Amino acid sequence: MSNFPTCSLITPTYNWPEALELILLSTINQTVLPNEVIIADDGSREDTKQLIEAFQKKIPIPLIHIWHEDLKNRKPKIMNKAIAASKYDYIIEIDGDIIMNKNFIEDHLNFAKKGQYLFGSRVNIQKKLLTKLFSEKIISFNLFSKGIKKRGRTIRITFLMNFAKSVEKRSRKLRGCNMSFWKEDFIKINGFNEDLVGWGIDDSEMIQRLHNIGVKGKRLKFAGIAYHIYHKEQSKIHIEINNEIEKQTTEKKLTFIENGINQYL
């Protein structure tokens, strides 16, 4: 266990303390704790701040709250600020609507390897379960749990990861809600692109630049299990602009963007 890299768990949040509470409860429940947790807060109200302060008293690791003003969706910027503030070598990133299986951090650290990033999938928690989920603060699920979809993804058989191959091209299965990478690689490509606006593409565009510098990907299957809490789809009003930026990154094999993490380092 001791040869695991040191790591920072980072999650963005925006005005959804009910979901954030389940993230933090599932963090405390981990078989291997991260060295710190950083909440990248895109401008939430006071109730989120109060929740984080309450957890700072009961979580046995540093819990850091990085906040900026609410000027609509600026996730790449707040994620860059959070990662710039992180103290450890390896970054595990989950979305603000993810409940982690108790072995989640352990699995990411177990399969972390230089020159590689990891990405996992997610089990979907259905809308009909939400009232019960939040009132009973459910953080454990299994193959037979009610109110979930893609239940095959609840199965953990880490031994099978020994046969997983790394990929040189960005996978269509990539989801930013469940991934991990080396901080030094992230800094090399200047982090998330803050020219991306609104929802979507920020994770996959960043990962494309990692591939462009020769970092490979590996998909976590039967490991790194995460549960995605149902929510309404976000506005995709800027998706065309973001898709175009990603297309340029891919076609021109761009490795560095101007508007990135270096502003905060």
Rank of each mutant, 00 (worst) to 15 (best):
N3Q: 15
F4T: 03
P5R: 14
P5S: 13
T6V: 01
T6Y: 03
T6L: 07
C7A: 14
C7F: 05
S8V: 05
L9A: 10
I10T: 03
I10P: 01
T11L: 14
T11C: 14
T11K: 02
P12Q: 01
Y14C: 13
N15Q: 14
N15L: 08
N15V: 10
N15S: 15
W16D: 13
W16Q: 15
W16G: 13
E18K: 15
E18R: 14
A19T: 10
A19C: 10
A19Y: 01
A19W: 00
L20S: 01
L20A: 07
L20V: 09
L20Q: 08
L22K: 05
I23P: 04
I23E: 12
L25I: 08
L25W: 00
T27N: 06
T27P: 04
I28R: 14
N29V: 00
N29E: 12
Q30I: 02
T31K: 14
T31D: 02
V32A: 04
V32E: 11
V32Y: 00
L33M: 15
L33R: 09
L33G: 07
L33Y: 08
P34S: 08
P34C: 06
P34L: 13
N35D: 15
E36Y: 02
E36G: 07
V37K: 03
I38M: 05
I38P: 08
I38S: 07
I38V: 11
I39S: 04
A40W: 04
A40G: 12
D41Y: 03
G43P: 07
S44R: 06
R45G: 15
R45M: 06
D47P: 11
D47C: 12
D47E: 14
D47K: 13
T48V: 15
T48D: 08
K49F: 14
K49D: 11
K49P: 00
K49Q: 11
K49T: 14
Q50R: 12
L51F: 07
I52K: 08
I52G: 10
F55P: 12
F55A: 14
Q56I: 06
Q56A: 03
Q56R: 13
Q56S: 10
K57R: 15
K57L: 08
K58L: 13
K58W: 00
I59Y: 06
P60K: 09
P60H: 00
I61V: 06
I61M: 01
P62Y: 01
P62D: 04
P62M: 09
I64L: 12
H65I: 05
W67P: 02
W67C: 05
W67G: 03
W67R: 12
